[in-house]
């Protein structure tokens, strides 16, 4: 539900696009085209919009980096090389690697079933895959506590086998997979549906097996969309806070991911260190957005003509 369809971001190009603020003054006879407003209105609206964006988005982003380097570069490096910080970074990378892999496999499998076949109940299945988008992260964490926690439904068998899920890595991974569940599938399903099944039928009529059809025809056709999904999935997996917070137990150096580490440092008034770790995640967000912008032009190529 929260994903943006790639084509949504394609802007009309300048040729017959919006009039520039400067151009408007030169229209003939003082009459402006029917499709736009007086220059003063346009400038005012633009400035209000930019001020709003600056206030709510630009400043917070800038502040992360300013605060991170406030006490100098040495303090920044020290904050990041703290053993607990390093442990948090390692854990975050591990959790993201596992959950992104799981979601890529699931995304490919689900989109093959959904996009290449006609069956009853398809739209219900798509809705269910989207469901985690609309569940509060805290609720997402809670459901695993209710299932696997010390008072959970499966507490007895887990204790008997000595398996620890809550307050341990498996719980963090499960909660992360839950909140990122739809990311890859959501990018692939609409694209593969638009692409149809003709190319697969052609490959099979030429003697290709199901697997070689998938790897030689289907997968190359959606590679950019897949990468796009992986990117968004990874950003969310590394940054997830609420769900992970509920299942993690906050054990320093053991079950603290980067966002949780940021919280602990912040609550201990170690603002510099907190923002230092936060700057890494902010950087990840920026890189993700840049890569996403670059990918969007590639995505347009995959849309069927």
């Amino acid at each position: 539900m929260s994903t943006i369809h790639p084509t949504a971001l394609v802007q009309p190009l300048a040729s017959d696009g919006p009039p520039t603020l400067a151009k408007q003054a030169r229209t003939q006879n003082g009459h402006r085209p029917a499709r736009t407003e007086p220059a003063a209105v346009r400038i005012a609206l633009t400035l209000i919009a930019l001020a709003f964006l600056g206030l709510f988005i630009g400043l917070p982003l800038l502040l992360v980096f300013v605060e991170a380097f406030k006490r100098g570069f040495a303090a920044y490096v020290a904050a990041l090389s703290d053993p607990d910080a390093l442990a948090a970074i390692r854990l975050t990378l591990l959790v993201a690697a596992i959950s992104v892999t799981a979601n890529v496999i699931f995304g490919l499998v689900a989109s093959w079933a959904i996009a290449k076949f006609e069956f009853a109940g398809k739209s219900l299945l798509i809705t269910l895959i989207d469901l985690p988008f609309s569940v509060s992260p805290v609720v997402a964490g809670l459901i695993y506590v209710l299932l696997f926690g010390s008072q959970g439904l499966l507490a007895a068998p887990l204790q008997a086998w000595d398996i620890k899920i809550i307050f341990a890595l498996p719980g963090i991974v499960l909660a992360t997979i839950f909140v990122t569940f739809p990311f890859v599938a959501r990018e692939l399903i609409p694209l593969m549906q638009d692409q149809g099944t003709a190319e697969e039928e052609a490959a099979i009529s030429l003697g290709a097996s199901g697997f070689s059809t998938f790897f030689r025809v289907t997968l190359p056709n959606v590679k950019w969309a897949l990468l796009y999904g992986v990117l968004l999935c990874n950003a969310r997996a590394m940054g997830e806070f609420g769900a992970v917070s509920v299942v993690s137990g906050h054990v320093r150096g053991l079950t603290n991911t980067m966002p949780l580490h940021i919280e602990i440092l912040y609550n201990e008034y170690q603002f510099g260190a907190s923002f230092a770790v936060a700057s890494l995640l902010a950087l990840l967000a920026l890189v993700t957005l840049i890569a996403k912008t670059i990918l969007e032009s590639r995505l347009a190529e995959e849309e069927p003509r």
Binding site: P60, L63, A235, F275, A278, L281
Partner: peptide, 11 residues
């Protein structure tokens, strides 16, 4: 969308 919520929160 991209900035982790904890980072947005402290900022």
């Amino acid at each position: 969308f991209a900035l982790p919520t904890a980072v947005a929160g402290i900022a």
